[in-house]
Simulated scan of single mutants.
Amino acid sequence: MIITIYLFLGFLFGSIDAALAASTEDAAKKEATVVVYGAGNVEHWQKINEAFEKKYPYLKVKLFRGNWEKVRNRVMTEGRAGSYFVDVLQIDGVNGWVLKEDGYLQSHKSAETEAFPEAFRDPSGMLPCCLDTLTNVIGFNTRLVKKQDAPKSYQDLLAPRWKDKLGMDADEGEWFAGLISVWGKEKTVDYFRTLMKQNPSMRRGHTLLANLTGAGEFSVAVNLFGYRVMEMKEKGETIDLVKADPLMVRPAHMALARRAPHPNAARLYIDFTLSVEGQQIMASLGRTVVRPGVKPKHPELTEGVKLHPIKPEMAKNYEEISKLYYSIVK
């Protein structure tokens, strides 16, 4: 009797889910378009969008691409003018939190998010996670530093031998905030103050920093994105990485705009990017995905170490944390 009830309930809920999905698709057909704002490689966007349009041939994707701060500013500028063009936002946690708090997002509890590790889920559905992630790693030039001599931890970067030999992105406030969540404020502040005594060469942009490390501009980069190092290694460039603990990870969330003009097409798009099919596409492009069952192109970036996602709620005190960071890193 009990088994029969469970089977009936399973059939009932399955039928409801199927009906809802069909209803969403029917409504999306009338919308015809989905407008996406996001950051990242244009070729990667083309691949995911082409696959989406192949699956849903009655929908066309329109993309605005800029960094995450530009995405946030564009949404807020349009909102203040009473103009609402965007449907889906691919955005990091800090900028996503600002948009959520200011009322620019609405909940979409995609069933696909249930497949992701719990640490990456957002029960509210306001910032579904995640299209892909950026792993924070130490990078080093293999011509200047032998693998066995490379720093193995963040503490190793404070050794005398690395003084005047480090490169660093000047804008690491988000990583700083993430480390505070793991190390605590006092330890993180002490670490960065000591790190600054190493006189790192400051640059702006992780891609630039990776390129300069590969070119031998400096021996070691304090913080790079793992996927970029792996791309450079594949091309035979003289660069490698170290996964230091804690390994901070920056997820790219897929959020539904509160006043999306094409909300049903937007829901289909978000679900597709988080699905096995969408995640396999991202993985094939070398992006770091964390959905279990989808094999990343570079599993070494996430295997054998605990991942610490930079959560959106870390933005609660981000203005204060950012001021503290820039009082240290000058």
Score class of each variant (00 low, 15 high):
residue 74 R to L: 13
residue 77 T to A: 04
residue 77 T to K: 09
residue 78 E to D: 15
residue 79 G to M: 05
residue 80 R to N: 11
residue 82 G to A: 11
residue 83 S to A: 10
residue 83 S to P: 05
residue 85 F to M: 10
residue 85 F to Y: 10
residue 86 V to N: 04
residue 86 V to F: 06
residue 87 D to V: 03
residue 89 L to H: 03
residue 91 I to R: 11
residue 92 D to N: 12
residue 93 G to E: 09
residue 93 G to I: 12
residue 95 N to P: 08
residue 95 N to C: 06
residue 96 G to W: 00
residue 96 G to E: 00
residue 97 W to F: 10
residue 98 V to K: 14
residue 99 L to W: 01
residue 103 G to K: 04
residue 103 G to H: 03
residue 107 S to G: 07
residue 109 K to I: 02
residue 111 A to K: 15
residue 112 E to K: 02
residue 112 E to C: 01
residue 113 T to R: 06
residue 113 T to F: 01
residue 114 E to D: 12
residue 115 A to Y: 00
residue 120 F to R: 07
residue 120 F to A: 06
residue 123 P to A: 11
residue 124 S to Q: 14
residue 124 S to I: 12
residue 124 S to R: 11
residue 125 G to S: 10
residue 126 M to D: 03
residue 126 M to N: 00
residue 128 P to Q: 11
residue 128 P to W: 07
residue 131 L to K: 08
residue 135 T to Q: 14
residue 136 N to F: 11
residue 137 V to T: 08
residue 138 I to N: 04
residue 138 I to G: 03
residue 139 G to F: 07
residue 140 F to Y: 15
residue 140 F to G: 00
residue 142 T to H: 08
residue 142 T to M: 07
residue 142 T to F: 07
residue 143 R to Y: 02
residue 143 R to K: 15
residue 144 L to S: 04
residue 146 K to F: 06
residue 147 K to R: 13
residue 147 K to V: 07
residue 153 S to T: 15
residue 154 Y to C: 01
residue 155 Q to G: 01
residue 157 L to G: 01
residue 160 P to R: 03
residue 160 P to F: 05
residue 162 W to Q: 07
residue 162 W to C: 09
residue 163 K to W: 02
residue 165 K to C: 05
residue 167 G to A: 13
residue 168 M to L: 13
residue 169 D to A: 03
residue 169 D to F: 02
residue 169 D to H: 05
residue 170 A to F: 05
residue 171 D to P: 00
residue 172 E to R: 06
residue 173 G to D: 15
residue 173 G to W: 10
residue 175 W to D: 10
residue 175 W to N: 07
residue 175 W to C: 04
residue 176 F to K: 05
residue 179 L to W: 01
residue 183 W to A: 10
residue 187 K to Y: 10
residue 189 V to P: 07
residue 190 D to S: 13
residue 191 Y to R: 01
residue 192 F to V: 06
residue 194 T to D: 13
residue 195 L to F: 10
residue 195 L to A: 09
residue 197 K to M: 03
residue 198 Q to L: 08
residue 199 N to I: 12
residue 200 P to E: 07
residue 200 P to H: 06
residue 205 G to Y: 08
residue 206 H to G: 13
residue 208 L to M: 11
residue 209 L to W: 09
residue 209 L to N: 14
residue 210 A to Q: 13
residue 211 N to D: 14
residue 213 T to C: 12
residue 214 G to T: 14
residue 214 G to P: 07
residue 215 A to Q: 15
residue 216 G to I: 06
